[in-house]
């Protein structure tokens, strides 16, 4: 264990796991309360289109991926609002189109893209100082937004109609939440990859939701589960031949299953 911490790549990986753990479990809290789970999965798959665009054009794939992820999240919210269609339906369209764009770009520009595999399945052990900086900035920005508008965001998740009737800027705040979700997805792709990122922004909140009767404890539990999951997965992958991304998601799943099993015991 202490030997594990002497490697520079492992220290960076642990720091990344901590940052992404906090980021995802904060967003997860809202994703579960506002029922946006499918949107999370959709954003990450759409981001693949943006990442592929970066790879074939030589632009920074993290940047193009971010633009796609945030753009998808916000336009989904916008289209579902003006068209009165559910977010699920809109993202269902983006989901496949983004993936299709990624596949089309990568197969028509025949080249060798070693980064692609890492982006699909995550590669936390190769996290660079620059990646950490990006995650740190995303985390800082999102935490500021969430802390400043926490009571309003909670009210919007609970009862949008009342929030609107009270005169709150529901549209802009909701768009801000979706943008934060897009950024979180991109920041987490480093850790677990496009395919698995949805688990990170759903499982911590879902586990905490099962165990809490109040949002305060739900938020704290969500953070605990998110951080435990990303650290736990990293340890598992250090000692066993499992890729970190898969290990993190599996550890989270085990925590969720344990919470489901324990819940009847907690309830009087």
């Amino acid at each position: 264990m202490s030997e594990m911490l002497t490697y520079g790549f492992m220290q960076r990986a642990l720091l990344a796991a901590l940052l992404v753990g906090i980021l995802c479990s904060t967003i997860s809290f809202f994703v579960v309360l506002k029922r946006l789970s499918f949107l999370g999965a959709g954003i990450s798959h759409t981001a693949l289109g943006g990442i592929a665009l970066g790879l074939v054009t030589g632009a920074d794939p993290v940047l193009t991926g971010s633009v796609f992820a945030v753009g998808t999240a916000m336009s989904t919210g916008y289209i579902s609002r003006i068209g009165k269609i559910s977010e699920d339906t809109v993202i269902g369209i983006f989901y496949a189109s983004g993936m299709a764009l990624g596949i089309a770009l990568i197969s028509s520009f025949k080249g060798y893209y070693p980064e692609l595999f890492a982006l699909l399945f995550g590669n936390i052990l190769s996290v660079s100082g620059r990646d950490l900086l990006y995650m740190g900035l995303a985390l800082a920005g999102i935490l500021v937004f969430v802390v400043l508008f926490f009571k309003e965001l909670l009210a919007i998740c609970f009862d949008e109609e009342m929030a609107e009737a009270g005169g709150l800027p529901v549209g802009p705040l909701y768009m801000g939440l979706l943008a934060a979700m897009g950024l979180t997805v991109i920041a987490s792709i480093q850790l677990v990859g496009v395919v698995l990122v949805a688990a990170l922004i759903v499982t911590p909140g879902a586990t905490a939701y099962r165990l809490s009767s109040n949002y305060r404890s739900m938020l704290v539990l969500s953070l605990a589960v998110g951080i435990a999951g990303s650290f736990g997965g990293l340890f598992v992958s250090y000692y066993y031949p499992v890729p970190p991304g898969a290990a993190i998601v599996l550890v989270l799943a085990v925590i969720f299953a344990a919470a489901m099993a324990l819940r009847p015991l907690l309830n009087k």
Binding site: F149, C157, M162, Y209, Y215
Partner: peptide, 20 residues
């Protein structure tokens, strides 16, 4: 939704004036 009765009532206090 994981709110207590008083949390629900608190939503009624929110307005543009209570932003930030």
């Amino acid at each position: 939704f994981p709110l207590s009765a008083s949390d629900v009532v608190a939503v009624g206090l929110l307005s543009p004036a209570t932003l930030l």
